[in-house]
Design a protein around this nucleic acid. Structure first.
Lengths: 194, 194
DNA sequence: TATATACATGTCTTTATTGACATGATTATG
DNA sequence: CATAATCATGTCAATAAAGACATGTATATA
């Protein structure tokens, strides 16, 4: 397996809270859980079929309006047990991360490289707006203690995401502080001088 | 493409510094760059072949000892140009991260869940030893300013990795501070009471 | 000198994941 | 009422990536 079929457990976990359709499951990855895992509908729908074949989940068909059908999936006892086994097993690995930007940066060998400034600036902008979005999420979802109750894990990882992005921004800002805004050194290709 | 063939550019970048064998390329992912991308030899060797077919790299065969052959790959002008194009293009995306632990945590809805303590403790141990290792790397590779020169990007991302792991540990420690060491609530399965 | 470890290169199968293709219904908005 | 956005579910081909399988050499160490 490329990972360990973590997606399967995420689906089980989400359906364990409440029955959901494939569409709703797909949308779940647009919000906070998307900070730590992602999946498209083209991966989700086939997996739902497979999981149903394995009796981990079942569905009942609902009809919206005149004829629009949707399948609402729910966890079976077998699926619930499998979820519990996953949850009970402490995670003894660190999921290896990927970061194209960091890698690109790795190949900038010189602190005076003219490309550094725009590279860092571009990423900083991205991470700042992400951070802003996450802080909005936190405010809207967990502004009071009572909202945390029953969603503690969600609160924890949203907090985690915010701290991660905050740190990412700080790092970029620090790096930016030592990157010249105007290129002095050659950039490997035609760097325009000002 | 699942990503955008970032691996191709990493290989180009590494070979641009100095010609390397497939084996050495593979090993590169065990050190700091592995903090931001990973690849196995079973992905690297076929890709080297493909890239050579596309004239991005070439190789010359060396012999070690009596008959052990190895192919030392180097970037062609075409490959170098492609690398430069990648480096010149600011990264306008954030590579989506994956973190099985965070996801598992998401499904712990109650702060009093007995599983929380061991989950957090296990991860903290992992991230602490990773942090320790990274700090060792920093000390051995960049203890003086002169060592940074010519490897600035490497220095930056190592710093990034250290700050990331430091933050991760802090977050775990904070979460741990509010997680009871002994289970009061049920854990979904047989939680032993003390 | 036995032997374990590291060096060295590959292939093959399976699984994970993306992105494109494909279709149609419902609802909100102008 | 037109039409855009969203809801809703799927398939298919291609690429990415993991893990197992396969083989042999060179070197350090006991």
């Amino acid at each position: 397996m490329a990972q360990k079929n973590v997606l399967q457990f995420i689906i089980l976990g989400l359906l364990n809270e409440q029955p959901l359709t494939g569409y709703e499951l797909t949308k779940a990855f647009d919000s906070d859980i998307g900070e730590f895992w992602s999946a498209r509908h083209s991966q989700i729908y086939p997996l739902l079929n497979r999981m149903e074949g394995e009796r981990l989940i079942t569905h009942e068909t609902e009809v919206t309006g005149e004829k629009l059908e949707r399948k609402r999936y729910a966890v079976t006892p077998v699926g619930a047990e499998m979820l519990t086994r996953w949850l009970n097993e402490p995670t003894r690995t660190i999921t290896p991360g990927k970061d194209e930007f960091a890698l690109k940066l790795y190949f900038i060998s010189d602190a005076s490289d003219g490309r550094l400034h725009v590279m860092l600036q571009t990423q900083l902008q991205l991470h700042r707006s992400k951070l802003e979005h996450l802080e909005g999420q936190m405010k809207s979802k967990f502004s009071t203690d009572s909202q945390i109750r029953g969603h503690y894990g969600h609160y924890l990882i949203l907090n985690h995401a915010i701290r991660r992005e905050t740190e990412y921004c700080h790092w970029l800002e620090d790096a930016l502080a030592s990157a010249p805004a105007v290129a002095d050194a050659d950039t490997g290709t035609g760097a325009k001088r000002s």
